[in-house]
Each structure stands twice: as C-alpha cells, then as structure tokens.
C-alpha cells in the first residue's frame, strides 16, 4: 500500500519533472549562447498552451495541426522578443538584462490576459483519459505522451547541437563568443536562434502539460522558475544534466507534497534552488567554475 503510493508520487513527479527539464534546457540554451537568464522563459510555456487552445477552439484545427501551429507562433514570439527587447538594448549589463526580461515577461503576460482573459482553460488530452495501471499505481495516457515527446525533443536537441552546422556554431558561441565571432560565426544570428529554440521548447512543454494541469495567462511564472531551478541543478547544461535536474526536482516536489505537506510544494523547489546556489553553484554534477560566484 505504502509502496504503491510512493510509486504513484514518483510517476507523477517524473512527468512534471520532464516538463521542468524541457523548460530548463530552454533556459540553458539561451544562457550558454548569450550569458542571459531569460526571465521571460515561462511566458512561452504559457503561450504554447493558450495558443493551442485558440487553434483548437477558434480555428477548429485538429490537435495534430494545432500543436505545430502553436509552437510556430510561440517561436515567432521568441524571435520578436529578441529582436525588439534584447538586441536594441544599449547597455546590456546583467542588471539591465534582468530588468528587461522581467519587463518583457510582464508585458507578454499582460497581453495574454487581454487576449485570453483571466480564466483557467482546459485542453483535451491527446488520446483519451483512460487510466493505465502500472504496478499498484496508475497513469494517464497524457503522462506517456509527456515522456515520449520529451524524449523526442531531447534527441532532436542532441542531434541539432552535435550533428548540424548551425548547432555546432551555437556550441562554439557557448564556449567562447568572441572566438566564435572571429572564425566567422554570425553570433547575433546564433543569439536569435537560441531565443527561437528555447521559446519553441517552452511552448512544447506548455502544450503537453496543459491537458493535465489546465492553463491560464499566469501559469508561466511558476513553471518558468521551476524550469530555471532544474537548469541550476543541472549546472546550466543544455543536455542530460538538466534533464536529470528536472526529473529530480519533479520527484522531490511530488514526494514532498504527498508525504509532508502540499502547501509547501512550491517552497521545496526554491529551497533546493537556494541550497544549490549557495553550496554548489556549478550544479549538482558540474566541476567547479567561478563564473557564478
């Protein structure tokens, strides 16, 4: 009985963790390409969910068409965000970047409130709601979708960074922006790409989680922060470390909420965040690096 319950918590923790991982990788990609922590990252998660809703309800698209459509529009939003807010910044000091991405995130959230209102919206599951029994625990088909899509995204991500010219150029920027520029890589374009990729990933995360948790104009804040937490645990890596960070966070949160107190569920993530920043700012798996302290 007790074991079944824990299994249940772990399973649902893993599925939220997968979402955190996707958002966290988005954070890392931008951070690695630009040195910016994009406080607006969560808003793209929100946009993904709500745009899917519009595609389904208003445009009457089938779900398989609505999703790519929503991702495309979110990516466009990411592009516009970089072009209109980040690039024109005259004094890109860390504090100004923090302020402008916060400002941008509030603006996006506000616009979303104008468009979709303050209500919470539901999105239908991708394939029914019949629970699947696993051991003594149950899962929804949507959980499987989350796992499957997360794996696919991570594989695509890996392929992009290691086997395409543009992905390799992006890694070069992450390693040394100046040197990358010197060997002829268009760094500004890579920065733009990084914003587009991470807004697309955020949007996907927002879409696949929406059927489980519902969505609203303000879901981006918390999801974004949790994603950041995953990325910090993973040492701002855009690979497996952040995925593990996300899964770990999801499971800990779910266990904490189930076994200790559900009210403090959100606090768990932030306590982990603070502990990691204080004790191991290079992430749980990283080697020492003095950049962050």
């Amino acid at each position: 009985m007790q074991f079944d319950q824990i299994l249940q918590y772990v399973l649902s923790g893993l599925s939220t963790g997968a979402i955190y991982a996707l958002i966290g990788i988005g954070f890392s990609i931008i951070y690695n390409a630009t040195g910016i922590i994009n406080f607006a990252q969560g808003e793209f998660v929100m946009l993904g969910g709500l745009l899917t809703l519009t595609c389904l309800d208003l445009l009457k698209l089938p779900i398989w068409a609505a999703i790519p459509c929503a991702v495309a529009v979110s990516t466009l939003a990411g592009l516009l965000f970089e072009r209109l807010a980040i690039r024109p910044l005259r004094q890109p000091t860390p504090i100004n970047l923090v302020i402008i991405t916060i400002g941008g995130s509030i603006l996006i959230r506000g616009l979303a409130m104008l468009i979709w209102g303050k209500d919470t919206h539901a999105i239908p599951s991708f394939s029914g709601d019949d629970p699947i029994a696993i051991g003594g625990a149950t899962m929804l088909p949507q959980h499987l979708w989350i796992f499957a899509i997360t794996v696919v995204i991570i594989v695509i991500n890996k392929f992009y960074f290691y086997h395409t010219i543009s992905g390799k150029a992006m890694r070069a920027c992450a390693y040394n922006r100046r040197a990358a520029g010197l060997v002829g890589i268009d760094v500004r374009r890579m920065v733009l790409f990084s914003f587009m990729i991470s807004s697309a990933m955020g949007a996907v995360a927002g879409i696949i989680v929406a059927p489980l948790t519902m969505t609203a104009y303000d879901v981006g804040v918390m999801l974004g922060l949790k994603g950041f937490c995953a990325a910090i645990i993973g040492g701002m890596s855009s690979g497996m470390a952040t995925v593990v960070g996300g899964l770990l966070l999801g499971v800990l949160e779910s266990l904490g909420a189930g076994l200790i107190s559900s009210g403090y569920k959100d606090a768990i993530a932030f306590i982990i965040l603070l502990l990691i920043l204080f004790i191991r700012p290079q992430g749980l798996f990283g080697k020492a690096d003095s950049e962050r302290v």
Partner: peptide, 11 residues
C-alpha cells in the same frame, strides 16, 4: 552575482 543573485533573492 547578476542573474544568479536575482534568482536567489526571488526564491
């Protein structure tokens, strides 16, 4: 410093 300080104080 910088972004990390922002996130820690936010947390």
């Amino acid at each position: 410093k910088g972004h990390y300080l922002a996130m820690a104080t936010l947390g």
